[in-house]
């Protein structure tokens, strides 16, 4: 009986191991096709970029100012998410300018939607974004 009990336990353990490995492989396979899924990508892609973020009052904001946890910015995505968070928190539009190959100047609204700043855009935050690139300390 003791031997049978051991056999049953070991069979169950073997099944648990196989199930775990199966789930882990499925997770990896999904992460290959679903970019938003956290996977084991390990700095496989780094997009060099620069940004300027200004709050509703026109003050320059650094990513580190609003995101205190350790992080490596491997692309502009988290900065855009941070801009949306800031706009929602202050319930006011914020300005975000990103240079990664080209340049995108955006107003990020509290709803999460964006409005592009034109070259001659006279809106205050758009003008502030253009001048933010001349600021020091970035």
């Amino acid at each position: 009986m003791a031997a049978m009990a051991t056999t049953t336990a070991s069979n169950g353990d073997g099944r648990k191991l196989r199930l775990f490995v199966l789930l882990s492989v499925v997770h990896v396979a999904l992460s290959l096709f679903v970019p938003a899924l956290p996977g084991w990508k390990m700095f496989s892609r780094v997009v060099p970029f620069q940004y300027r973020l200004v709050d509703a009052a026109g003050r320059a904001v650094r990513f580190d100012d609003i995101a205190p946890l350790p992080h490596y910015l491997t692309g502009p995505g988290p900065v855009q998410e941070a801009a949306e968070w800031l706009a929602q928190r202050d319930n006011a539009p914020v300005g975000l300018s990103v240079r990664a190959g080209g340049q995108w100047d955006l107003l990020v609204l509290p709803t999460g939607s964006t409005s592009e700043c034109g070259e001659q855009d006279r809106r205050r935050l758009c003008q502030r974004l253009r001048s933010a690139w001349e600021d020091e300390g970035r």
């Binding site: 775990f20 390990m42 892609r45």
Partner: peptide, 29 residues
């Protein structure tokens, strides 16, 4: 005599290595 979670941890690590490598097999990387 056996601990399935240790085998699972070993497999998890191996899967992490392979996955990390596969994601890096791009011209850019």
């Amino acid at each position: 005599r056996s601990y399935w979670h240790l085998d699972a941890a070993a497999w998890q690590l191996a899967i992490v290595y392979v996955s990390a490598a596969v994601h890096k097999i791009t011209p850019n990387y």
